[in-house]
């Protein structure tokens, strides 16, 4: 399978990438690691006329301590997240979830910004960034704006990013001493989650779901039940409330709802241990 023909441009900097997007508009797509976009192009589900390769924009590859949060450059690869000393000290959940993405080969190429911009509800990192209340920094021709994780994901493969905008950085609050667990259910080790559930216990409790609707979701009903004093078992029964899980070759919506309840319970148990 080979992508439809396109013009290829390599951007040397974030500004060059934004200029290329301004020139080509809707016709152009940004290429980071290519782990999501290239498969879509090979299947001809995406046929951009211009591909702007930002894979070598090194200025957007970093993980740094910024006081109460960690700044992660959008082009930081999963491999660099899962081996990051800064994350080990200040945000272990991000390191853990990055190590669950795909497989070694995918993590050598794929980037956090690519995963987030793709907006796939079956991806691991968007749900975590939602649970952690991360903030996305977006740059366009008119300058920079910040978007909270709750605002960022709009629908299936749809985010607030405009065609001429580039995600440059993700600000992730530090989670010192937080209990954390990610329960990912899949048929083959490297697959997307059929359903995933993650719990962050850090004073309060945040629960997020992978592949239970058009976007990554917070399990609000579970969080509220816990706040009202429900046990983990009771709260986990609410895991599928307000979700709209897809039915596909892997699972029916009903089975996904069952998985959500079981995985949320396991995640809460593990994060409390």
């Amino acid at each position: 399978m080979i992508p439809a023909p396109f013009d290829y441009q390599r951007a040397g900097s974030a500004d060059e990438a934004i200029a290329a997007l301004a020139e080509h508009g809707d016709e152009a797509k940004l290429l980071a690691g290519g782990m999501s976009l290239l498969p879509l192009m090979k299947l001809r589900l995406a046929t951009p006329a211009v591909l702007v390769d930002i894979g070598r924009v090194r200025e957007l590859s970093y993980v740094r301590d910024a006081g109460d949060h960690v700044e992660v450059g959008a082009l930081t690869r999963h491999r660099d997240l899962e081996t990051s000393d800064v994350l080990a000290e200040h945000c272990a959940p991000l390191r853990t979830v990055a190590s669950e993405v795909g497989d070694n080969q995918v993590r050598h190429r794929g980037t956090i910004g690519g995963s987030v911009s793709h907006g796939d509800p079956a991806s691991d990192l968007p749900a975590l960034l939602l649970a952690l209340d991360a903030v996305f920094v977006v740059r366009g021709p008119a300058g920079e704006r910040t978007v909270s994780a709750t605002e960022f994901f709009r629908g299936f493969l749809e985010t607030v990013l405009e065609p001429d905008e580039l995600l440059t950085e993700i600000k992730v609050p530090k989670t010192p001493g937080a209990g954390f667990s990610y329960q990912k259910f899949q048929r083959r080790a490297q697959d997307w989650a059929i359903v995933g559930a993650m719990a962050v216990r850090n004073g309060g409790t945040r629960v997020a779901l992978v592949n239970m609707g058009g976007t990554p979701l917070r399990a609000v009903a579970v969080e509220e039940a816990l706040t009202s004093g429900a046990s983990i078992e009771e709260a986990a029964e609410r895991a599928a409330d307000g979700t709209d899980p897809p039915g596909d070759i892997h699972a029916t919506p009903e089975y996904r709802e069952h998985l959500a309840r079981v995985l949320v319970r396991r995640a809460l148990d593990a994060a409390s241990g």
Binding site: Y8, R10, L31, G34, M35, L38, P39, K42, D53, G55, N104, Q105, V106, H108, R109
Partner: peptide
């Protein structure tokens, strides 16, 4: 290691 079916030669 990378999967060469999902990388452009240009990359």
């Amino acid at each position: 290691s990378v999967k060469s079916c999902t990388m452009l030669a240009a990359q």
